[in-house]
Design a protein around this nucleic acid. Sequence first.
DNA 1: ATAATCTATGAAGAGCCGTTCACTTTGTCA
DNA 2: TGACAAAGTGAACGGCTCTTCATAGATTAT
Lengths: 207, 207
Amino acid sequence: MAAQLTRRERERQQHRREVLEAALNLFSRRGFEKTAMAEIAEQAEFAVGTLYKLFKDKNALCRALILDTVQRFERALTAALKAPGSELEKLERYIETKAALFLQHMPTARLYFAQTADAAFVPTAGLNEEARAIHREMLGLLESIFRSGIRKKLFLNIDPRMLALGLEGLTNAFLIELLERPHDFSAETMADSCKTIFFERIHLKGE
Amino acid sequence: MAAQLTRRERERQQHRREVLEAALNLFSRRGFEKTAMAEIAEQAEFAVGTLYKLFKDKNALCRALILDTVQRFERALTAALKAPGSELEKLERYIETKAALFLQHMPTARLYFAQTADAAFVPTAGLNEEARAIHREMLGLLESIFRSGIRKKLFLNIDPRMLALGLEGLTNAFLIELLERPHDFSAETMADSCKTIFFERIHLKGE
DNA sequence: ATAATCTATGAAGAGCCGTTCACTTTGTCA
DNA sequence: TGACAAAGTGAACGGCTCTTCATAGATTAT
């Protein structure tokens, strides 16, 4: 049973979490390559050797952290998309959830972006295949909501995949700006702009 | 005069360019940290020592490459935005230029994204301050075009900075997808979706 | 209390990579 | 042509970082 672990096993899991938390802090500031195992160990108040008892090697530690991070975020976003409501309500909830989530967990958000955006350009030796699969799943869900909305004549008939990518890109752009300049905008302003740009016409006069 | 360099100097510049080209290929595939100077040397058909005659150290080489890359892209985009025409025409030209540009220079585009997007999260020891300043300048230009369009009642009255960020994020999202799956979409389809999403209403029925 | 088992430690090993420099080759100019 | 300067070379060095492992400590079972 998952709940009836020995004290040993429970503590082991706790230590794992502590190491991952330390790694998150360092990675989100210095990046993967520039963070040494010795630093992680120091930050987590363990010896280097202990890290190797908890994780096979540095890559495994990274993978675990990325998977953890991406999973947590995607789970929250998926939940927002799956809750009941109209297509428009679901998408608006997605935007709000994403904004709130990212602001509350900025180091995690940094890592999330580094893995969903950047990882696309420089294939890092499969460090993130699983994580990317999870992300693609969420994108598929977004896409299906757009498709359903198009069927119901709620949205313009544009390739739903494009719409999904577009909404993702738009929200990301705003959130990245927020990560860089936390005091220039609030999460609410941001979410509102997102909704207006995406769901109202931008251009007032046709040609 | 810039045009009257000695043969020596001209060849030196040529060799510099060759080294940068080799580095671009390797960086865009393996990333900065995982590319060794020896690899760059081999790819460029020079000895390691020669690289150090052309660039102070690895960081200087990276900086030169990034600056080069970002400058070329931003110059083309700025030109598209500054050419005559209405606000809408300028922005549509921006989208088209960006799509064509990125597809024609995919390795460069990878590096461009890695530096404009990713670099935002993990401050890489000022590897890219200059490059980011150039990028911000282009964003400012985008913003001013939106502002002007809003004054003329061409666009919805949304914070023009948000609009600039939004258009950037939207185009990037599509182009990143294109880098990953080059055969799923054409540049034209992409540019059209971009324009439609951004300049037509998405949502058909108000609530 | 004692043995057995699991966990933690951190110094030492091994490999990689950026950088240097003494030397060779090539080009320039008188 | 010969001498001087610049460019090119790559083996060797030093530092850094991942990983291991013999040892020490803690916990549990007998």
